[in-house]
Design a protein around this nucleic acid. Structure first.
Lengths: 109, 109
DNA sequence: ATTATATGCAAGTATTTACTTGCATGTCAA
DNA sequence: TTGACATGCAAGTAAATACTTGCATATAAT
């Protein structure tokens, strides 16, 4: 799994918006998703392709319609491999930080 | 809190690497961080500034040295406001998705 | 004082990314 | 089978991002 693609995909507000829309209603077509996006269909398509490439969205063809489904697994990966790791040390880091500040203010006092 | 800046900051592998380094050893100087980065000091500085802008890194000046400290709070925010939301519906979404697939395979059979 | 070290500022280039426009293809419905 | 609808493909433009180079400033060490 290419976590870089996931981060890159999430970096754009438009793409996050698309994920939100699918979160609100799963299995939407390109055209449906376009209605709330202030850009051409092509632009939206390209964003959706990136989301697909990052495996955040899966697609099912239904006749001439392309239905988009959210795949939350990569988000989970990001949490596991990235956020959790830092979270675990959250309090410790904050502690270190404050200690440093205090050390500066009254050094050896 | 500007969550877009956080996502943008995380979108670059170099910046994620810097966060990793600080996670490994907190409070490093620019120069120290540069040693493991295959680019000029200026480039690293600019990345660090973006991390600072996203509030992922805090800085303390110590004489001529600039010490960088990790701030995991924005990561937590991302989890809270983004990942968790999707996680909660993870199983449900997967369920919907499979049902859709099945429905296509043997429609009304 | 002089030199070395740690960093900043700013302009310029190169690469990447976002978005558009125009046309092509395939599916559905009358 | 014709017309409307859903989407794809591809080339081009505009804007954002990553990175560099050259010089300036401040702190520390000798």
């Amino acid at each position: 799994m290419d976590i870089d693609k996931v981060f890159k995909a999430l970096a754009d507000p438009g793409r996050r918006r698309l994920l939100d829309m699918l979160h609100h209603e799963n299995g939407q077509t390109v055209t449906a998703l376009c209605e709330h996006m202030d850009m051409t269909r092509q632009a939206v398509t390209q964003h959706l392709q990136q989301l697909e490439g990052a495996n955040l969205v899966a697609v099912i063809w239904q006749g001439r319609e392309k239905l988009h489904y959210l795949n939350p697994v990569p988000l989970h990966e990001i949490y596991e491999r990235w956020i959790g790791k830092f979270e675990r040390n959250r309090l410790r880091a904050l502690h270190d930080f404050k200690k440093k500040l205090e050390g500066d203010d009254h050094d050896k006092a």
